[in-house]
Amino acid sequence: MTGFLIRRILQAIIVVIGVTIIAFILQNLIATGPALAHTIIGPRATSQQIHEFIATYGLNQPMPVQYWHFLWQLLHGNLGYSFKENQSVDAILGQQLPKDVVLVGSSLVLSLLIAIPLGIAQAVRRNRLVDHVGTGLSFLLYSMPTYWLSLLLIAAFSVSLQWLPAEAPQGTNVGQILADPAGLVLPIASLTLVNYALFSRYMRSSAIENLAQDYIRTARAKGLSERYLLARHLLRNSLIPVTTMVGLSLPGILTAGLVTEYVFNFPGIGLTFFNAAVTSDYPVELGIAVLVGLVTVAGNVLADIGYAVLDPRVRYE
């Protein structure tokens, strides 16, 4: 177990270093030094202001030194200070992250709650109506870009039917967001549909594969009812590959979340990232890159844990 943990921590370090190096290089390719300062402060910046800006953020140092400085701060849990907002990056992320947990987390749970039973139902009634409808639906959703799906939902439920607001609730903390549940429906729904499309394909094929296994035949030969058999024998075994897949696609799910946030103007990490990119707020961009890197590793760990919990044959050392 300790060996497993050490491996995963090493992996996290490598991923974070890799992601930030790439981000660093890209940022330096776009603009550095005075050019960057101009972008941030504005066209009418005085040379005095520019000088101060460069000195404050250490932009006059060579790139490796800057990077080393960044890493050193990161080691102390300090992601730096935003160019634009009068806040530390830690504070910004700390404020936005819980709202994303609400958005991404609830849609993740919802999509699994739909995809698992539906996937099993499709497998059991393979090539029958339920299956064809399910397959058609998930292919349709899967082939649709996230923002396009979001726009369609807005067009249907906000513009035409006028049932639901097109904009997500605004607020700085989770409580304020939850105070306006109607505004949450469309963002969560669109993210849920995107995830559902992915998961239900996996769930269906995993369930089909397991239904053909000998142990299912044995369970039937014992006289178990079909419902009991699906719940007690098929479910756990079919979930094994799906768990891994969900864990590994966590970064992708997060990315879809970023797009959704932008479309619905949801005040979360995604919107923050988008704004930071527009305004060249490098420290915020880097902070979010670190976050995505960590989520990737966390997804891997969750996949491993889920796998080990479901499958007694797996043990980590």
Binding site: D214, N237, L310, D311, P312, R313
Partner: peptide
Amino acid sequence: FQDPMTSLNPTM
């Protein structure tokens, strides 16, 4: 059944 490895549920 023939093959006791595949005929038993591996996770129960």
